[in-house]
Simulated scan of single mutants.
Amino acid sequence: MAEHEVKQILRDLDHLQPATLSQAPNLLSRAKLALLKLDALVPDADTTPHHLHFGAAVLEHGALVSIRLKDTDAFTRYYQQLQSFYALPAERWNSRVGKPKNQAKVTGLYLLLLLSVGDYAGFHTVLEGLEVSSGKGEMEQNEFIQYPVRLEQALMEGSYDKVWGETKRERVPSEEFGVFSEVLINTIRSEIASCSERAYPSLPISNAKNLLFLDSEGAVVQFAQARGWVAKDGRIYFPQQEEEMLAAQRDVMSSSSMVIENTLGYARKLETIV
């Protein structure tokens, strides 16, 4: 009964459309309860290869659906649950079916998640583990793994234009990667914006459009308003930078006044001595 239910839920998950994606969490909850009855939610020595595939398939569906729903916390939980399946030796799996079919995709997405939150140490830890378990040659041939590797290299070089190019729809390995690419670009855009605030008092809107990888000047104005910038006369003004410049000017004026006052006091003392 439980096995039949898992099979039916997997078929339903395979045929979910964007309009029915909200049904996925309920289906996944039912599937995990059925896996518990089969002792296949967490693999042990007695779990059959047949049930191992059921468990991995349900959890991989959960991971991929979580990405499409933009629920990164749920995705991380599914990724962590899948590690007990991915760590199993090849002989534990059905030789005809092989290991879980979405292992590389889920792992590549997790690498992209780590990049999007700036966890470079975690990124390299996962890569090192993959190299040990799968071999460097297999990693270099897998597009799902190489995609985040290329992005990380571009980020380390500060080549944000390369990152932007890689995140174009036609370059991402699958729909799910496109979701994280959007998050990554927003992170980079925020970083560039923070640097711009510190470096310039203002920028032409046309320059800001290219600098921030935005599609139109209208998008620049919306982005500026969200960050508390001022857009007028074809330029973006950074209030924070202006305030800092005014504060610096006040400090200089205050220091100058002290110097003048001290100089005058010294002159008066000289007159008294004379």
Score class of each variant (00 low, 15 high):
L214I: 06
V163W: 02
R171T: 02
H53S: 11
D233C: 03
G55Q: 03
M245S: 09
W229F: 10
W93R: 08
P89W: 00
Q23T: 01
M1D: 10
Q225D: 10
E152L: 05
F213H: 12
S257M: 13
A219V: 04
E140H: 12
N26T: 07
E243Q: 14
L33Q: 13
E157K: 15
N142V: 01
E217K: 13
V179T: 13
K7N: 04
I192L: 15
R77H: 06
D215C: 03
L13R: 11
L59F: 02
S256Y: 08
E176V: 06
L16Y: 03
T187I: 00
H124S: 13
T20S: 13
A224T: 02
Y86I: 03
D44V: 00
G118E: 05
P239N: 02
V97P: 00
E242R: 14
I145F: 15
N94V: 03
A104N: 08
D14G: 05
I188C: 09
P18I: 06
L28Q: 12
I236E: 05
T48I: 04
E166L: 15
P49C: 03
V126T: 13
G62I: 00
Y160I: 12
K99Q: 13
R235E: 07
L264E: 09
V163Y: 06
E243S: 10
N26F: 04
D233I: 01
L114M: 08
V220R: 12
T72D: 09
G234C: 04
Q80P: 05
A193S: 15
E157F: 01
H53A: 05
S196C: 13
T47M: 04
G228E: 02
L82Q: 08
L82K: 11
Y237D: 06
N262E: 10
T48L: 08
A90Q: 13
A154H: 06
T107C: 04
L111E: 05
E3C: 00
E271T: 09
G129A: 07
H50Q: 14
H15A: 05
A57K: 15
M258L: 14
Q153W: 02
L112A: 08
L38G: 10
R30V: 01
A40E: 08
T187Q: 14
F238R: 10
E138L: 15
E3F: 04
V230Q: 13
K269T: 01
E197G: 12
Y86K: 09
T72M: 14
V117S: 03
L64N: 10
L109E: 05
Q249Y: 07
A224L: 03
W164P: 00
Q83Y: 00
V172H: 11
A31D: 07
G218P: 10
I67C: 09
Q222E: 14
G118H: 06
A267M: 11
L64D: 07
G218Y: 02
Q225S: 09
D39C: 02
